[in-house]
Amino acid sequence: MDQLVTGEAVALEVRPAQFPSRALAVVLDLLVALFAWFVVLMLLFATLTSVDEAAAAAISVGTFLLIPIGAPIAVETLSRGRSLGKLALGLRVVRDDGGPIGFRHALVRGLLGMVEVLMTFGVVACIASLVSARGRRLGDVFAGTLVVRERVPDGHVRPTPPPPPWLMGRYSGLDLSAVPDGLWLEVRQYLTRLGQLDPAVGHAMAQRLATEVVARTGARVEGVPAPQFLAAVLYERQSREAARAQAAALASARAQGTAAGGPYVPPEPAPAPAAPAPAAPAPVPPVVPVPPAAPAGPAAPHAPAGPGGPAGPAAPADGGRPGGGFAPPV
């Protein structure tokens, strides 16, 4: 871990890029630049058929100066120190005081890079990087720049102090799109180092940063101290970025569900099986009471035989008709 001293005498902890990562970033940048130079050169020779040797040599030199040398300078200037190779490896070129580089820094690095990287096949740049304590090559020494790592482990990132509760949500309707990333970086570095700064230096930095933020956002800060205002505005920006990230994650999940055949719909629980209806009871036949058998009575006495013949059938007990059927009168 190294330290950079800003113009306000504030020490910033940074991690200078090591030689292997810097070398790999340079190789990636050179491969992209040479490929673009080759493509542009072939297109020019294909369109310009009637070109003599002198014109062809002039075109080759011009495209070489424009693409492999001029293009990296333009890219580092516009991206504030992040070329394609550095972006892929998480590196960035900054000034000696930790600020973003400008066109002058990128121009000096590019011109000296043509000598120590292209003309000497990287030998001079390798020796200078290995000898330097911060791994700087000659272009960085003369331009006053340093290549640092932007991606650091979570343990080295210090959280910013939250704003007081009475300021949370006060700037929710503020337009923060006009505040550049460099100013946000300065605000965050100031808030994380607030307890380590000299009171006078910290007050001056807070006033300057708050003035710049107010000039770009039009916020009203009457009665709000500068450090608390910066903490509230930075908290609002972080909250919006977290909300955008969450919305993007939900949109990506929905897109993946649609691509797979439709959005995910949780299955409905299966209905419980209906209880079987009770079976109808079998009809019970009615019970017919059986009358008890009559007890056998004493036998009736036989009537005596009449004079005309044998005795006829016995008369019924109830004195009615004879039990043998109809008898004609005599």
Rank of each mutant, 00 (worst) to 15 (best):
71 A>Q: 08
15 R>L: 00
20 P>G: 14
150 E>Q: 11
247 A>W: 05
276 P>A: 14
254 R>I: 12
120 T>I: 01
276 P>L: 08
139 G>L: 06
85 G>T: 04
271 P>D: 13
44 L>W: 14
107 L>W: 04
284 V>M: 14
61 V>T: 12
27 V>Q: 07
101 I>V: 02
72 P>G: 06
279 A>S: 09
238 Q>N: 15
172 S>T: 07
105 H>N: 14
32 V>T: 09
135 G>F: 01
271 P>G: 11
77 T>V: 09
39 V>K: 01
102 G>I: 06
144 G>Q: 06
18 Q>F: 12
224 V>C: 03
130 L>F: 12
259 A>T: 07
317 A>V: 10
18 Q>W: 12
160 T>A: 15
119 M>R: 10
196 Q>K: 14
310 P>N: 08
13 E>C: 06
171 Y>V: 01
125 A>K: 01
119 M>Q: 12
258 T>S: 15
246 Q>E: 13
281 P>R: 06
160 T>F: 06
7 G>P: 02
242 A>N: 08
310 P>T: 05
140 D>H: 06
275 A>T: 04
106 A>S: 14
154 D>H: 13
35 F>P: 08
99 G>N: 09
211 T>N: 11
139 G>M: 08
23 A>E: 01
138 L>N: 00
104 R>C: 13
239 S>E: 07
187 V>W: 04
45 F>L: 10
242 A>T: 11
219 A>V: 13
195 G>S: 08
150 E>M: 12
217 T>R: 12
162 P>R: 01
29 D>K: 05
27 V>S: 07
138 L>H: 03
293 A>T: 05
12 L>G: 09
318 D>Y: 01
177 S>R: 13
41 L>W: 07
253 A>L: 09
7 G>F: 12
226 A>Q: 07
54 A>C: 03
8 E>A: 07
132 S>Y: 02
55 A>K: 04
172 S>R: 10
252 S>A: 15
97 D>K: 05
232 A>D: 00
227 P>W: 13
96 D>K: 15
161 P>G: 02
81 G>A: 04
99 G>M: 04
173 G>I: 05
192 T>K: 10
83 S>T: 11
207 Q>C: 11
324 G>L: 00
303 A>P: 09
324 G>Q: 01
275 A>G: 05
160 T>C: 03
